[in-house]
């Protein structure tokens, strides 16, 4: 009897230390993110030191600095943070619900659907301005995701069927995108810019468009984290544990789709964040989604932020779209992570 108590106590203490570790890592990530955000705010035609930027937050110092930092640079940074967090969270949900490590928001049809919709709008209604393009990207992503869900529905949605249908419809959409790009001629460069995901020229308008959605959905996703833990165990186990699997799955997928399409509608297709940030978070945090979700969100935000910084800092005044850099730095880092993990002897 006493042994049992001792074991339970050890488990409890072990759990507490792990929780402490997790919280520490999250705090550390917050700090790093804040550091890069301030660094990023200083970069531009006019350079500012971190001190000047912090002072301008409190309306101290030069008025010009305040205007430039708050009106021009801040929305861009805010977008990078929001978009990164949204894509990464969306990816965690997609991977856990589909129980497939290769899943990402694009498996749910987001990049294909929003890309196609945005491209069509920008080609045929080019006078309508950026708001309409964002709106159609959001709607397109949602519609295609819904279509995938319905095509895969047959007495419930088996994850493997959803993944297969998602891949097929995604390929279909990207064929459409290629067709339009090959045919469009003059407008190609605008479309290409959008398709490669850039934070260039974003204003507070885009930030206000997506902030409500993302700030509402992120907490909801976190509240659903425990269900994600259960969903990962498989449909039959989850059912046996009393979870209404089909409803939960629909709810989670809806969160994932809304987050990703909001992100894509604001900045275009930034790939890879939704695939790689969840993996990094899982490698750091283990299997508890309460911790994986915030870690992934922070890592995603950091990845987009750093990519945007590098894209602007590498060969100024030319800007490389952040979407290209995310893959260019994310891919090697991810491979390194895999390699290091394999050294430790655990399988992938």
């Amino acid at each position: 009897m006493r042994d049992e108590t001792k074991v339970l106590l050890t488990i409890e203490r072990d759990r507490q230390t792990r929780t402490m570790h997790a919280l520490l890592i999250i705090a550390l990530l917050c700090l790093i993110t804040a550091f890069f955000a301030i660094l990023n705010l200083g970069l531009g035609t006019v350079h500012y030191s971190p001190l000047e930027i912090i002072r301008s937050f409190f309306r101290g110092g030069n008025v010009d600095t305040y205007v430039i930092v708050m009106d021009y640079r801040f929305p861009r940074i805010a977008l990078a943070l929001l978009v990164g967090a949204a894509l990464a969270t969306s990816g965690v949900i997609a991977q856990s619900v589909l129980r497939n490590p290769l899943a990402s928001p694009s498996t749910l049809g987001i990049s294909g659907g929003s890309g196609l919709a945005a491209l069509i709008t920008s080609m045929f209604f080019s006078s309508m301005g950026p708001f309409i393009i964002s709106l159609s990207a959001f709607a397109g992503g949602g519609l295609v995701a819904l279509a995938i869900y319905l095509f895969a529905y047959e007495k419930g949605v088996a994850p493997i069927r959803l993944a297969i249908v998602g891949v097929a419809i995604g390929a279909f959409c990207s064929a459409g995108i290629q067709l339009l790009v090959a045919k469009s001629g003059d407008n190609v460069s605008i479309a290409l810019m959008w398709l490669s995901g850039s934070l260039w020229g974003r204003t507070w308008e885009q930030v206000w468009q997506i902030t409500p959605i993302i700030l509402v959905i992120l907490p909801i996703a976190w509240l659903l984290a425990i269900r994600l833990n259960i969903m990962r165990l498989g449909d039959s186990v989850a059912t046996a544990l009393g979870l209404r699997v089909e409803v939960t799955r629909f709810l989670l997928l809806t969160c994932s789709v809304l987050l990703a399409s909001a992100a894509v509608s604001a900045v275009g297709l930034i790939g890879f964040v939704g695939l790689v940030a969840p993996h990094m978070a899982k490698k750091i945090m283990g299997s508890r989604h309460q911790f994986i979700l915030p870690t992934a969100a922070l890592l995603g935000a950091l990845l987009v932020l750093v990519s945007d910084y590098l894209g602007r800092a590498l060969i100024p005044p030319i800007e490389i779209p952040a979407g290209l850099i995310t893959a260019a730095i994310g891919a090697p880092y991810f491979l390194y992570l895999m390699w290091r993990e394999s050294r430790k002897g655990s399988s992938i």
Binding site: G271, I320, L324, I325, A328
Partner: peptide
């Protein structure tokens, strides 16, 4: 993903 981002970058510029 890595290679196609390079492809896109080359096309873009």
């Amino acid at each position: 993903a890595f290679l196609s981002s390079i492809t896109q970058g080359l096309l873009l510029f």
